[in-house]
């Protein structure tokens, strides 16, 4: 159950992620290997806001097409683009214009022509049917008030036999209602 309408939730999340600033690498260092981080642009690392490492469990192979739902500043999209190589492709999808801009800049900084960043909603996925081998996502599904719709859209764009590797936060037990009603908790 969500205490926010879809529109309110989007507005809160767009504002929070659009305004977020960070100059340290604590989050990324707690998730990714030093050798992975070393090859990435600094802003992809300092704005790493994920909660795990879906790329590690995705079993990516050269030539595959990957979709990263809620790519943020692009850290997982970039790692996926490296993993699938020049014959593959990684598409990062995000609804926050500031994050889309940062992710595009990071892809350019790395010279990754097989990384494409698109602005859009994961509930209204802009990719065509059966066009993706692997869907990844990192700490984003919980931000949607329509998680089943997000998953149905992921399913639609995947080819038969395609895989998902989705990292997200879940509650072990209910949190106090005051927390669940907090916009700050929603954005995280």
């Amino acid at each position: 159950m969500s205490y926010f309408t879809e529109q309110d939730a989007r507005s809160i999340i767009r504002n929070a992620y659009g305004e977020v600033q960070s100059d340290d690498t604590k989050v990324a260092a707690s998730i990714y290997g030093a050798e992975e981080i070393a090859g990435l642009p600094r802003s992809a690392v300092t704005l790493s806001l994920g909660v795990g490492h879906p790329v590690r469990h995705a079993g990516l192979k050269p030539g595959e097409m990957v979709l990263d739902l809620g790519c943020g500043a692009g850290i997982d999209t970039l790692l996926a683009a490296l993993a699938v190589g020049p014959k593959g492709k990684a598409v990062g999808l995000d609804m926050t214009p500031e994050m889309v801009k940062r992710a595009r800049e990071n892809a350019v900084l790395m010279g990754l022509e097989n990384a494409q960043i698109r602005e859009g909603l994961m509930e209204e996925n802009p990719l065509p049917d059966a066009s993706v081998d692997v869907v990844i996502s990192n700490g984003v599904l919980n931000l949607s008030t329509r998680q089943s719709r997000v998953l149905a859209e992921a399913f639609r764009v995947m080819r038969p036999g395609g895989r998902v590797s989705i990292t997200d936060l879940v509650l072990a037990e209910a949190l106090p209602e005051a927390v669940l009603k907090s916009p700050a908790a929603l954005a995280g």
């Binding site: 879906p54 700490g139 038969p160 998902v164 590797s165 989705i166 990292t167 936060l169 879940v170």
Partner: peptide, 12 residues
């Protein structure tokens, strides 16, 4: 909360 990673497959 828990961070979980879920993997799954679309049936052939």
């Amino acid at each position: 909360v828990y961070s979980i990673t879920i993997v799954a497959q679309k049936p052939r």
